[in-house]
């Protein structure tokens, strides 16, 4: 089972397909879950404290807005953990955790820099593209190691 970073990290479709075809999707939910389930200083709604943008300095310089650095504090460790990635390149309406275009650019760049296998594709807009989309994702995932990684 490989750990596959999904982009958009909030994607239902990618999260489903990665798990369906036997791998572990790494997305925003894992980062948020970790924070929601960890005791500390109360900071609703996401339990992201002002310390997180400071942790984000590892991924982006201080002149980068706090919202980018705070988001990177969630994604940076997941990107480091990822063994592969699937990127939908026209995910223009992914909000919240994916709602900042500058963060999104940095995530995609970081993934491309990391040297892991990456599949880049667009959302399907008809049934034929749906078939191609699923087939491409399946082929990519089938090519990843099944036994390594994981917990």
């Amino acid at each position: 089972m490989a750990k596959v970073f999904i982009y958009p990290a909030t994607s239902l479709i990618l999260s489903d397909l990665v798990a369906r075809f036997g791998h572990k999707p790494l997305g925003a939910a894992l980062g948020i879950r970790e924070r929601i389930q960890t005791a500390g200083v109360d900071s609703p709604p996401l339990q992201i404290t002002p310390e997180e943008p400071k942790r984000g300095l590892k991924y982006a310089a201080v002149e980068v807005p706090s919202g980018v650095r705070g988001r990177m504090a969630i994604y940076g460790p997941l990107i480091e953990e990822a063994e592969a990635a699937i990127i939908v390149t026209d995910a223009d309406l992914a909000f919240g955790c994916m709602g900042c275009a500058r963060t999104d650019e940095l995530i995609v760049f970081s993934l491309r820099q990391s040297g892991i296998p990456i599949l880049e594709l667009k959302y399907p807009s008809n049934e034929e593209e749906g078939v191609q989309f699923v087939a491409a994702v399946k082929k990519f995932l089938d090519g990843l190691p099944k036994e390594e990684g994981g917990a």
């Binding site: 109360d42 900071s43 609703p44 709604p45 996401l46 992201i48 404290t49 002002p50 310390e51 997180e52 943008p53 807005p65 706090s66 919202g67 980018v68 705070g70 988001r71 969630i74 919240g96 955790c97 709602g99 900042c100």
Partner: peptide, 14 residues
């Protein structure tokens, strides 16, 4: 807004 939840300041707004 854009970003207060991720900057850790939404609580301050509340």
């Amino acid at each position: 807004s854009c970003g207060p939840e991720y900057s850790g300041v939404q609580k301050e707004i509340y």
